[in-house]
Simulated assay, not measured.
Amino acid sequence: MPFQSPSLLIGVSARIYYPSGPVLDLGGVWTKTLHYLEQSIAQLLMRGGALPVMIPAVDAQSVVQREELNLRHYAEALDGLVLQGGNDVAPATYGESPLSPAWGGDAIRDQYEMELIHAFVQAGKPVFGICRGLQMLNVAFGGTLWQDIKTQLPNALEHVKHAMYERNVHPVEIVPGTRLASLYPSNHRGLINSIHHQGIRDLAPGFVVEARCPDDGMIEAIRRTGPGFVAGVQWHPEFRQENDTMTLNDNPILLDFLNCARDAATICRHSQRR
Rank of each mutant, 00 (worst) to 15 (best):
P6Q: 09
S7W: 01
I10F: 05
P19R: 01
P22Q: 06
L26Y: 02
T33V: 14
L34V: 05
I41A: 03
I41D: 03
L44C: 04
L44R: 12
A50D: 00
L51A: 10
V58A: 13
V58D: 03
V63Y: 15
V63T: 12
L71P: 03
Y74M: 00
A75M: 03
A77P: 08
A77T: 14
L81N: 01
V82S: 02
G86V: 07
D88Y: 03
A92H: 10
T93M: 07
S97L: 11
P98V: 08
G105C: 08
G105F: 01
D110Q: 12
Q111T: 13
E115D: 15
H118P: 10
H118A: 15
P126W: 06
V127H: 09
C131A: 07
N138E: 06
F141R: 14
W146T: 04
K150M: 09
T151S: 05
E158R: 08
H159P: 15
A163S: 12
M164L: 15
P171M: 10
P171R: 06
S182W: 02
L191T: 07
L191E: 13
I192D: 07
N193Y: 14
D216F: 09
D216N: 07
G217Q: 13
I222K: 14
R224C: 07
A231F: 11
W235E: 00
H236F: 10
E238N: 08
Q241D: 10
Q241Y: 05
D244R: 01
T245W: 06
M246P: 10
I253M: 09
F257R: 09
N259V: 08
C260R: 07
R269K: 09
